[in-house]
Design a protein around this nucleic acid. Structure first.
Lengths: 177, 177
DNA sequence: TTGGAATGTCAACAAGGCTGACTTAAACTG
DNA sequence: CAGTTTAAGTCAGCCTTGTTGACATTCCAA
């Protein structure tokens, strides 16, 4: 049920005869949403970035560590698709992580062309440090906003993804509850 | 009121005797939120990026155009704070925009050290083209998710910002409805 | 056995961040 | 008025992280 007290200030909804909900979204409301995304993403990355600045790593290293943690044993190609970068770009990051002993690359058993990626103990430790920093902010934001807001947050974000990314995202959600 | 059907799958809320709502947020739920942010931000920037790729501009030019549009007459220093980059970095972008006749820089009347920035007609046209592309996706996401979700989306994003960015954001919201 | 797929590597380049040093002009302040 | 601070711009150099293109290797599968 769409009720006034649940609606964003300024947005309007109306039920048609057929029961379909129409939304009147002004350009201004959408603009504000875009700005919110911009500022929030800055906050989202700020804490891990601060940690990484000390080490000689960047945000790209964090992303690699994150998704290797999320899907241990993933192949390079799979990681490429998730991250949406070229293999040359990923390779540069991956190479330093392997050299520094944070990531282990194992030749595939069934297909020996493939490399399966795992975090070493040291890699797991850094990954945890980075995500702890990121999660602290998210936890605080979730608590401030409340569970209804969080559900809406997730719904809008999912609807904003490219269809291919949405598939990747849902695949990652499976098998993790 | 917190009711089960409004809650995100897997999140739990409980009312204490004092009426305070407690949230039990697992690391896993927060991780999923982080991944949603990552994938959604990619989608968020994808459409304007495609347009900019043709021209010799990048995302940084888009951001400058966006905020000059949002706050016409803003000074360079103010824009610096909003974008969170160094003046050297902004200057490189701003210089090309001014040279190409998309942005006009006027010497301040009251303080002649300041430069006030405005979009030219051409600048306004490009800005509109870029935000139209971005807004189309946001409009679609907002419609899919519904007004309650949008309100929650905005609440979580705002709570995720650095306090200083939150101030900038709210200041921008004022005087625009 | 040959074609194609997966991976890795080299080179070159561009965008867009950063720091540091310095100039100019204007404004403020003692 | 002299000295300091502020706003803006510039130059030089560096780093990360993205890109393309070319090419080698390895291995699977038809």
């Amino acid at each position: 049920m769409v009720e006034a007290q649940h609606m964003h200030e300024g947005s309007e909804a109306r039920r048609t005869g057929s029961g379909e909900t129409l939304l009147y979204l002004t350009d201004e409301q959408l603009r504000q949403g875009a700005e919110a995304m911009f500022f929030a993403y800055r906050g989202f990355t700020a804490d891990p970035d601060r940690i990484l600045a000390g080490l000689s790593y960047g945000r790209a290293h964090h992303r690699a560590l994150h998704f290797i943690h999320a899907a241990p044993g993933t192949t390079v190609n799979n990681l490429l698709n998730i991250l949406g970068v070229t293999k040359q770009s990923l390779n540069r990051v991956l190479r330093t992580l392997i050299e520094d002993g944070l990531v282990e690359s194992r030749v595939g058993r069934v297909d020996k062309r493939e490399r399966h990626l795992f975090l070493t103990d040291a890699g797991g430790t850094l990954e945890r440090e980075l995500s702890d920093a990121q999660r602290a902010r998210m936890r605080s934001a979730y608590k401030q906003a409340g569970p209804e807001a969080v559900a809406g947050f997730r719904r809008v974000l999912e609807a904003m993804m490219d269809p291919e990314m949405q598939r990747q995202y849902r695949r990652l959600m499976e098998g993790r509850g």
